[in-house]
Structures are given as structure tokens and as C-alpha cells.
Design a protein around this nucleic acid. Structure first.
Lengths: 151, 151
DNA sequence: TGAGGCATCATGCTTTCGGGTGATTTTTAC
DNA sequence: GTAAAAATCACCCGAAAGCATGATGCCTCA
């Protein structure tokens, strides 16, 4: 089920456990010192909390584990492509460009396929981007698939 | 790296700070209780360390998530993504890059998401392209969807 | 008949992508 | 312990993509 992930390196886990043990040892040692009065203890505990929180953040971010569901959540389209074209104001020609774009074609290839110049393809794609509210063709493809504009 | 804090929402930071303050308050309150002797204090501090470490890990992980980029899943593959990764020789890290690529992210955004440099992302994406036998990222997305590498 | 939508094309400019190459470090495998 | 694989980063350079702007011709519809 988990297709791509990386375990937390054992070295990191060991380092983490060792640092915890070191802090515990430091606490034990400090018990024999007299600098740790009641007021300082609060700051000491707060410092431990901050240190381990920071270490936890670092550990959490350095681990590569990432669930599929975070990125790939299927969206069931409730509208037909025609309704979505109407909704976004996408013209038929722009739809053609979008479809070929999603097929992996470059602007030049789309231009040759549609017998127009590459500038025209750029204009159409720019219009599609602004109408879909995206900046790049990959975003346009993703949004078109998500909304059901493209199967 | 200061970029670590870029993607953490302010609400999360506030929540985190508030929980820290609550724990400190709980510590203050516990000083007036008598259950906290010398031996229990070590366990108490260790508990705080564990709690904050866990919270830090959660924070570190959750800050990498993104709820918006979702992908519609039209394909019923005959092979599992793991088998396809094995077939194409795609590594887990390259798979991550491919997934974020399909989510519409630019190389720069992928780099920020994975906390690596844009050069690393370019290397991974180039490897993915050559392994999939394509030239552009849109082609890679298309092929990955067709083969079932990506839902 | 004139306004507006659509499709077409262009030019200049900036950003991003992708290929190629080489390198170091970390992790894994034997 | 060593070798292979994986992950990381850097640099150069050309191609592609994207943005802004303006223009022309066609068609429809009021």
C-alpha cells in the first residue's frame, strides 16, 4: 500500500535516543549540583521541551514518509465536460489545446497537430491558464483532471 | 536553514506555542501538589521530552502536507506501483518527485517541499524522464498515469 | 452595422525546463 | 570493510514555456 517511502535511518534514531539519554544523564548530574533551584527548574524543563520539539521537527522533516492520500485523493466529477467548459468559459479550440497538452505534447507539437502557429497555441494555453486560475500547464492538467474536464 | 519554517502555518505555530504554555502552567500547578518527588521528576521530564518530540515530529510531518493538489484517478492498472517502480528502476525519491510533478508543482516548489536544492530536483526528474523514456514532464505524467504508476 | 466573441499571429522579454557533466556524501548490500 | 546504489548539489547552455501587448480577420447577433 505504501509505494514510495523511506524509513527513518537507524543512525538518526540512535542519535535521537542517545541525545535523550544524555539529557537524562545531565539531569542526574545536575541533581548533585546546587545551581538548580525551584525557579531554574522551570526554565530547564522548558528548555528540554524546546530542544526535543526542535529535534522532533527535524526528525519529522528528514523522514521521507509521505502518504499517498496526501496528494492523490480522487475527486468524483459531478459535472460533464461541457458544463465545465461553460463554467470556466473555455472555448472549443482552447479545449483542444488543453487536451493535447494533457497528452504530453509540447506547444510546437500542438501547433503542428492543429495546423496553427506556435504563437496561437501559446495564446490559447495562456487563456486556459487564466481561466483555470493556474500558472503552468502541469497545474492545468491536474486541475482539468480533478474537476472532470479531462477524463 | 531558515527555509524550515517557511511552510508552517501561523495557526499551527500558535497552537504549538499555546500547548507549550499549557504544559508550563501544568508544571507550575504540579509544584503545589506533592506527588512530584525526586524520582518522579526524572520520569516527568522524560515524559515532557517525549511529548514534545512527538509533537515536533507531527508538526514537521504535517507542515509538509498540502491539501489542495489532488489528482483524479481514472486508471485501473494491472500492476502495482511497486512493480512498475521495479520495472522502470525508479527509486523512491524519484517517485516522490514524479508525484509532486504530477500534482502540478514546479521544480522550485518541489525543492522547497522536499527540502532539497532545485538542482537535486532536476537530477531526479531527469532520471525519471530517461527511465520512462520521455522528454518532458507532461509526458512523464501522462505515461505514469497510463501505466498505473500514478493513480 | 457595429459590438463582441473567437481564432489567428506576432514580437519582446523573462522564467522555467531539460540535457549534459562531474562531484561528494549517505545509505544499502554483500 | 568494501562496492554498489541512492541521494545530494553544482555549473553551463540551449530549448521551451509563459507573460504582456497589440493586431487582424471572421462570424454572429442585436
Amino acid at each position: 500500500m505504501t509505494t514510495y517511502w523511506r524509513n527513518i535511518p537507524w543512525s538518526t534514531l540512535l542519535l535521537y535516543g542517545a541525545s535523550l539519554g544524555l539529557l537524562m544523564a545531565a539531569l542526574q548530574y545536575s541533581r548533585f549540583r546546587l545551581w538548580m533551584n525551584a525557579e531554574a527548574r522551570e526554565w530547564y524543563i522548558g528548555l528540554i521541551a524546546l530542544v526535543f520539539a526542535a529535534a522532533g521537527i527535524w526528525l519529522g522533516r528528514s523522514s521521507r514518509q509521505q502518504s499517498e492520500d496526501e496528494i492523490f485523493t480522487p475527486v468524483a466529477p459531478n459535472k460533464t465536460p461541457d458544463e465545465l467548459m461553460e463554467q470556466y468559459g473555455i472555448t472549443p479550440r482552447e479545449m483542444e489545446v488543453l487536451a493535447l497538452m494533457a497528452a504530453g505534447l509540447s506547444n510546437q507539437e500542438i501547433a503542428e497537430r492543429l495546423f496553427v502557429s506556435i504563437n496561437t497555441v501559446k495564446t490559447h494555453s495562456s487563456n486556459v491558464f487564466s481561466k483555470l486560475g493556474v500558472q503552468r500547464r502541469t497545474q492545468a492538467i491536474q486541475k482539468a483532471r480533478q474537476t472532470g474536464l479531462i477524463p
